[in-house]
Simulated assay, not measured.
Amino acid sequence: MVMVTFLGTSYAARKGLHIRMSILNDALRGKPQKLLALFVSLVTACIMLYLAWLSFRYVRRVGTLHRVSPILQFPLHYVWSVVPVGFALTGVQYFLTFFRNLKSGDVWVSYYVKDELLDPGEMAAKKEGN
């Protein structure tokens, strides 16, 4: 579960599948929307890398204490090492999004997915086309 959660976060960020509170983003257009996208991706990247650093320190501490799982006696720092990796990969994905938004005229929710606001009529037409 730990592996799926933290590596899945990076995958969701890469594909633009992460949960977003988009009411402010949807209300904005043009330069303010672009600035918001730059701000959100940069701040999120920094937070993810900070969490990667904190979790790395924690995993290192667990390793030095030689903590093991109760039944299998498996070193816990091996299990928890995926946490800083997942945070770091997620941070990288958000930095890529930041740079994509910096270079492009469009707004991107990930490096590969453009932010597209569809009205209900466009959504229905797109659904019928699939």
Rank of each mutant, 00 (worst) to 15 (best):
residue 48 M to G: 01
residue 99 F to W: 09
residue 35 L to N: 11
residue 27 A to I: 02
residue 122 E to G: 01
residue 56 F to A: 08
residue 118 L to M: 13
residue 75 P to A: 01
residue 112 Y to L: 14
residue 18 H to R: 14
residue 55 S to C: 06
residue 124 A to I: 10
residue 7 L to R: 07
residue 67 R to A: 15
residue 24 L to M: 08
residue 94 Y to H: 12
residue 77 H to F: 07
residue 26 D to V: 01
residue 21 M to S: 08
residue 20 R to T: 09
residue 21 M to N: 06
residue 10 S to Y: 14
residue 1 M to Q: 12
residue 4 V to T: 15
residue 23 I to P: 00
residue 116 E to A: 10
residue 96 L to D: 02
residue 3 M to R: 15
residue 36 L to M: 05
residue 49 L to I: 04
residue 53 W to S: 07
residue 60 R to C: 03
residue 75 P to D: 05
residue 65 L to G: 03
residue 72 L to D: 15
residue 124 A to M: 12
residue 65 L to A: 11
residue 79 V to S: 08
residue 23 I to V: 12
residue 20 R to H: 06
residue 120 P to T: 04
residue 117 L to S: 12
residue 74 F to K: 09
residue 72 L to Y: 14
residue 109 V to R: 07
residue 84 P to Q: 05
residue 83 V to P: 04
residue 106 D to G: 07
residue 12 A to H: 13
residue 79 V to P: 12
residue 4 V to C: 12
residue 110 S to K: 07
residue 58 Y to L: 13
residue 56 F to N: 09
residue 95 F to C: 06
residue 44 T to V: 04
residue 30 G to E: 01
residue 75 P to T: 01
residue 126 K to F: 00
residue 114 K to E: 10
residue 5 T to I: 15
residue 33 Q to E: 09
residue 95 F to E: 01
residue 15 K to F: 13
residue 121 G to W: 06
residue 46 C to Q: 11
residue 58 Y to H: 12
residue 70 P to T: 10
residue 37 A to E: 00
residue 109 V to P: 01
residue 13 A to G: 04
residue 10 S to H: 09
residue 88 A to R: 09
residue 37 A to Q: 00
residue 90 T to G: 04
residue 110 S to G: 04
residue 36 L to I: 03
residue 60 R to Y: 13
residue 102 L to N: 03
residue 89 L to P: 06
residue 93 Q to A: 13
residue 4 V to N: 10
residue 44 T to W: 07
residue 19 I to A: 14
residue 85 V to F: 07
residue 9 T to K: 14
residue 57 R to F: 00
residue 51 L to R: 09
residue 125 A to T: 05
residue 59 V to E: 02
residue 22 S to T: 11
residue 109 V to Y: 02
residue 59 V to T: 13
residue 114 K to F: 03
residue 45 A to P: 08
residue 29 R to S: 14
residue 42 L to I: 07
residue 79 V to W: 06
residue 116 E to I: 04
residue 129 G to Q: 15
residue 62 V to W: 03
residue 117 L to E: 06
residue 100 R to C: 09
residue 22 S to V: 05
residue 52 A to I: 07
residue 9 T to G: 14
residue 75 P to L: 01
residue 79 V to F: 09
residue 78 Y to D: 01
residue 42 L to T: 04
residue 22 S to I: 02
residue 126 K to S: 10
residue 102 L to D: 00
residue 123 M to Q: 15
residue 71 I to H: 08
residue 117 L to Y: 05
residue 18 H to G: 12
residue 70 P to R: 07
residue 56 F to P: 04
residue 80 W to N: 13
residue 50 Y to K: 03
residue 61 R to F: 14
residue 102 L to M: 07
residue 82 V to F: 06
residue 93 Q to E: 13
residue 120 P to Q: 06
residue 96 L to S: 00
residue 26 D to W: 00
residue 25 N to I: 05
residue 59 V to D: 01
residue 48 M to E: 12
residue 46 C to V: 11
residue 42 L to E: 03
residue 38 L to A: 02
residue 84 P to S: 06
residue 73 Q to H: 15
residue 51 L to M: 11
residue 47 I to A: 12
